[in-house]
């Protein structure tokens, strides 16, 4: 069966990274250049997530089992 990551798990990975980034940014000791890079990454991921969820189309697979073929 497919080993490909599902849309949901990719989505969840992005959400986790966003959480991680916002935690990292809370640390004021972080240097400015790094902070800006993280901020940009976090914003990009957030926008991606919003677009992905808004535009998602439900994927449905129907198995052709014995009942169906009846």
């Amino acid at each position: 069966m497919s080993k490909q990551k599902s849309a949901v798990s990719l989505f969840k990975e992005k959400l986790e990274r966003i959480e991680e980034i916002s935690a990292l940014l809370e640390d004021q000791e972080i240097d400015l250049e790094k902070a800006i890079l993280l901020y940009e990454e976090g914003m990009k991921l957030s926008q991606e997530c919003i677009v992905v969820l808004k535009d998602a189309e439900l994927k449905i697979t129907e198995l052709k089992n014995s009942f169906k073929s009846n």
Binding site: S6, V8, V52, E57, L58, K59, T61, L63
Partner: peptide, 18 residues
């Protein structure tokens, strides 16, 4: 189907008809 569409359309549904 309608709940999935409304709440979280990223999910994939696999129907095994019975």
């Amino acid at each position: 189907i309608s709940v999935a569409k409304r709440r979280f359309p990223l999910v994939e549904l696999v129907l095994a008809p019975a």
